[in-house]
Amino acid sequence: MTKKLLQGNIAAAESALANGLEFGAFYPITPSSETMEHLVIKMHPLKAICSFSELETINLLYGAGATGVRNMTATSGCGFSLMREGLSYMVGANVPSVIYLVMRFSPGLGGLTPSNEDISIVWGVGGHGQSKCPVFTPSTVQEIADCIRWSFDVADTLRMPVIVAVDAVLGQMYELCEIKKSEFTITNKDWAIGANRNNVISSRRTVGSYQSYDDEQIKQIKHVLEREQNMQYVCKTLCEYQYHYNENKDGIYITGIGTTGRVVQEVAEQKGYGYIVPIILNPMYKINGVKKLYVVEVGGTQLRDIMSANYRDAEIVSIVYENAIPNEEDLIRRIV
C-alpha cells in the first residue's frame, strides 16, 4: 500500500471502509462533517443515513450493531452529549459500534477551535450507569486511521462501543497516511439478531421484588464486569501500540494528547524530560517510576483529573492553554 495525503476526518472514513464498515449514520456537525460527506458518497444510500438528530443517529447504530454489522458515526462534543443515552443502552446490551468524536472548544455551543474538553466524559463513562468504553486518542492522521482499524476489532471482540476522540486540528489536518486492513476478523456472531436464533438484545435488568435475577441475567451482569477487566488485555493484544513514551531517569515526564501530544514530545526532548502520550486513554496503560508529571492540555483541566486518578503518587503540574494548541517556545517557558 502506498501513502496518500489525507485529511484526518477522511482518513477515518477511508480506514473504516477498508475495515468492513457496512452501516453509517450521521448528523452534520463541525468539525467532523468531512467524514460524513465522504462516507455518504462512498456507501450505498440505504446504508449511510443522514439522520434528523444525534438521538436518531445513535439509535440507528444500536439497531445496525444488533444485526452484527460494523457500524460507525462521526460527531463532535455537542452531538456526543445527545448520544450518551443511546451509548449507554449499547454498552448495556453488548452492541459493538465505533464513534469518531472530533472535539471542539468550550461547553454549550462553544467555539470551533480545537480542544481536549470531551475526554473527561468519554474516559469516565460513555453514558449513564456503568458504561465505560474503550477510548482512543490518536495524535497523527496515520494514528487516526490505525485507531479506527483497531477500534472495529476491539468493538467486535468486547461487544461494546469504542470511541476515537481527536481534536479539531487533527481532524482538519492533511498528512501522509497509509490505510491498512485488519487481519483480525470475528465471523461468529451468533448473538446477533436477524437469523431467527431467538436472540434478545436488551440492556434491561429486572431487579428487586418485580422479578428476582435468573441465571441468565446474573451471567449478563457478570459479563459486563468481566468485560472491563478484559478491556486491558484486549486493547493490548489487538493494538500495535498503546502510547508514545520516552523514559526519563529522574521520573519527570510531560503528557498531553492529540495535537498537544505532538508538541509535548518535541518540548520534552528539548528539555531532557520524558514524555507519555496516551493513544489508548481507557484502559490506561500506566508507566512506572513517574515522580513529577506536567499535564499539558487545551480548554480545561480534564486530562489533569484523569492523570491524577492514574498517577496518584506523582506530583501533578497542570498547564492549561485556553483556546489554542500550545507552541513549543511558550510551553518550554511555562515548564519550570
Binding site: 444500536y62 444488533a66 444485526t67 439478531i193 436477524g194
Partner: peptide
Amino acid sequence: SVATSVKRVL
C-alpha cells in the same frame, strides 16, 4: 430509529 437500521441492514 432502531427499526429503520435493522430494516435497512436485513
